[in-house]
Design a protein around this nucleic acid. Structure first.
Length: 340
DNA sequence: AATCCACAGGAAAAATAGGAAT
DNA sequence: ATTCCTATTTTTCCTGTGGATT
């Protein structure tokens, strides 16, 4: 059933990009100065989740490296690496300069090393850059002449709103590539590509891919997740073809799997908060804090709970409705994704 | 309309952590 | 083992906001 499982992973980068030729061209044009040894203006990739921003960045940069292997590429996900230290560390890591760096190395030391590695140009791809808490690091990187930036985020306005003035004025220049939601047939084509590479021939029909694409509503990540999950079920059952019921049951899988993963990654105290909210359905902050304190040996202050809560809102696990006095917390509703 | 006050969230201080240097 | 150093997390202190209450 499954021939090549890698193809169905969401971080898989296909050898050919479907339906995004204009975007590829825009990005590679903006990176062109690197081939003649110049730095580039920062490039921005904007668009909702699952429209291929990350995938396209990876693809374009591997192509660039084929033309000029001297260019180094570092890929940083700012969701996990959201401090200045971690971003710099992560960049050094990918150019192999991380030896003898430890917890007590000052940030300036990290910056200095990056500065010293000017012999080869470096393209730093900062994914989910709107999650970055210390945007000052962007200014740092901007000052390095051998570092070129590719910034990936959902929306331009929100990204720039989080910048401080220094950063904002520097980043006004640069190429912007806007990604739109995939249309139904585009998504089907993408899924078809994955199916022919990853599954046995005729494992899924185009009609079935259509169903998946509809359920994914333009989000390729979700679509591929559904396909993967359905294929796994089919393999478990030992059949040669995916059945309609396998697809039906794979649809909720894809969404809950993502959530379960993030819930597992929560800290213990955050988990308690999550559980309390889950049990209550909807709860006002006051009694949320109360119940939390009853459940935990050494409760944290309400201030840090508030920090945890805003983080969990970021993770899209919970939602806060209302402001100030009348605020309530609840789990983010499963069903529909409202357009953000 | 005026006043509470429950809450959010910023800033800065303080506690914690953990590797390095001695 | 002890001290030092810095990133990170938690607490303390605080201000502003807008819904609730009178």
């Amino acid at each position: 059933m499954i021939v090549d499982a890698r193809v169905l992973r969401e971080d898989f980068v296909p050898s050919e990009i479907v339906h995004r030729h204009d975007e590829v061209n825009l990005l590679s044009e903006s990176l062109e100065p690197l081939l003649s040894g110049h730095r580039t203006d920062p490039a921005f990739l904007f668009g909702p989740t699952g429209v291929g921003k990350t995938c396209l960045a990876r693809y374009t940069l591997t192509q660039l490296r084929e033309q000029d292997p001297a260019v180094r590429v570092a890929y940083v996900n700012c969701w996990q690496e959201y401090t200045r230290f971690r971003v710099l560390y992560s960049l050094l890591e990918s150019i192999g300069q991380t030896t003898s760096i430890h917890r007590s190395t000052p940030k300036d030391e990290l910056f200095g090393r990056l500065e010293a590695a000017a012999d080869q140009p470096l393209v730093a791809v900062l994914d989910e850059v709107d999650q970055l808490e210390e945007t000052a690091v962007l200014y740092d990187l901007y000052r390095l002449p051998h570092v070129s930036l590719v910034l990936i985020a959902n929306r331009e306005e929100e990204l720039f709103a989080s910048f401080d003035d220094r950063v904002r004025s520097r980043f006004h220049a640069g190429t912007r590539v806007q990604f739109d939601r995939y249309g139904m047939d585009e998504l089907v084509a993408i899924l078809r590509e994955r199916a022919t590479q990853g599954l046995e021939p005729n494992a899924v029909t185009t009609d079935q891919l259509q169903t998946i694409a509809e359920a994914a509503s333009g989000d390729a990540r979700v679509g591929i997740g559904i396909l993967r999950s359905a294929a796994r079920r089919a393999e478990q059952a030992g059949t040669e073809r995916v059945t309609a019921t396998e697809i039906e049951s794979a649809i909720p899988d894809a969404r809950t799997a993502i959530r379960r993963k993030t819930v597992e990654g929560l800290l213990e105290h955050q988990r308690v908060l999550y559980d309390v909210i889950k049990e209550a359905g909807e709860i006002e902050p006051g009694s949320l804090y109360e119940r939390y304190e009853q459940r935990v040996d050494e409760p944290k202050t309400t201030r840090t709970l508030r920090n945890h809560l805003t983080k969990m809102v970021h993770y899209d696990l919970i939602k806060s409705v209302g402001k100030h006095r009348g605020r309530r917390y609840r789990l983010v509703s499963d069903e529909k994704d409202e357009t953000s």
